[in-house]
Computed example of a mutant assay.
Amino acid sequence: MKAVVYSAPETYQVREVPDPVPAAGEVLIRVERAGVCGTDLHLHKGEFGPVYPLVPGHEFTGTVVDAAGDVEDIAVGARVAVDNTVACGSCADCRRARPAYCRRLVAYGVNAPGGFAELVTVPAARCFPVDDLVPDVAVFAEPAACVVHGLDVLDPAPGASALLFGAGPTGIILAQLLKSLGGVGDLTVAAPSQPKLDLVLERGADAVVRMDRQDPAAALRTLERRAPEGFDIVIDATGSTSVLELTVPLTRTGGTIMVYGMTAESARWPVPSYEVFRRELTVKGSFAQQFSFDRAIGVLRSGAVDTTGVITHRFGLEEYAEALNAVGDSACIKAVIQPGS
């Protein structure tokens, strides 16, 4: 089979590798769609804990084509979405119901072979049947699970006002679920791309503000006029420290800031600690997904998350370099790899 294989940061080949064989408890999946996201850019640079040689790709869906003899719950021929994480269940963090921080975590596409390949083996227990969803929808299960977990952490008060920075794939999912599940009463989304803002406006945002990517602070006055007392909730889904610097002045006294976007590991955000103290602000982070995969598939099934038109760029494995470049292109909303194309 063909796969993207990294040997070191920024060093990879698309090459033939042996077909994987399912071990006990595993199934073999023919990958139909694999999403490319900002995390893959960090992995490309050697951040986020990659283990080499690495086949990346942590957002994927496909059809089961083989299974170990002891697999009973997942049938050959089933389309599945894959939770790419396997926790040990017994370390200190697992025992505190924080599997994303498992000391022995296996993460397909990060420290185990992932979905940027024609075939991949994964534990049957991490597969969720999605025969009722087309691949273009099922591929959003993992990012939607991360957003559902983010809402678990955020726990917004019904009717709260919220400002969301970012209108990429995550921002689009966040905007929809903040309104439909989070109970947010008034949602403003700020981002550089007008087509992306138009999309979130169509899907539930109450207002949008276009920002200059090079000078996000230029939008500060517009956002202050939108909420003169500040927003109850301010979420950064961009991973930009220059955007994070806007969060404190735009948060209402007693409000909450959520760091959702992934910054570079070396990035530093100068937080005005006196303001956090004086105005009793809460700062939260949300990392990956925990106990939320089935609920994510539920919101995709129900239509609470509408992914129509979100995939704008499609690539074969041989076009992996173009796929990485597309993630940083403002004209791209979501890029996917279709290994068989």
Rank of each mutant, 00 (worst) to 15 (best):
E32G: 05
E32T: 08
I29A: 00
R33C: 03
Q13N: 12
A34E: 01
L41N: 11
D40L: 04
I29W: 00
G25Y: 10
C37I: 07
E16S: 13
G35P: 07
V17D: 03
G35N: 08
G38A: 08
D40A: 10
V17A: 04
G25K: 09
G38V: 02
P22T: 10
A34S: 15
Q13P: 00
P20K: 12
T39R: 08
V21Y: 06
R15T: 15
T39F: 10
R30D: 05
P20C: 13
G38E: 07
Y12H: 12
D40F: 02
A24N: 13
V14S: 12
L28N: 03
V21H: 11
V21I: 14
R30T: 05
T39S: 15
P22F: 03
I29V: 15
E26G: 05
C37R: 03
G25L: 11
R15D: 08
E26I: 07
Q13V: 12
V17Q: 04
H42M: 09
R30C: 03
H42D: 09
C37N: 07
D40T: 04
V14C: 10
P22Q: 08
G35V: 00
H42S: 08
H42Q: 13
R30G: 07
I29D: 00
H42A: 08
I29Q: 00
V36I: 14
I29H: 00
L28G: 04
L28Q: 07
V21E: 14
E32L: 05
C37F: 09
L41R: 09
Q13L: 11
V27W: 01
V14G: 10
A23I: 10
E16C: 07
R33A: 01
G25R: 08
L28S: 06
Q13Y: 04
R15N: 10
D19N: 06
C37G: 13
D19F: 03
D19Y: 06
Q13G: 04
L41K: 07
P20Y: 09
R15C: 13
A34F: 01
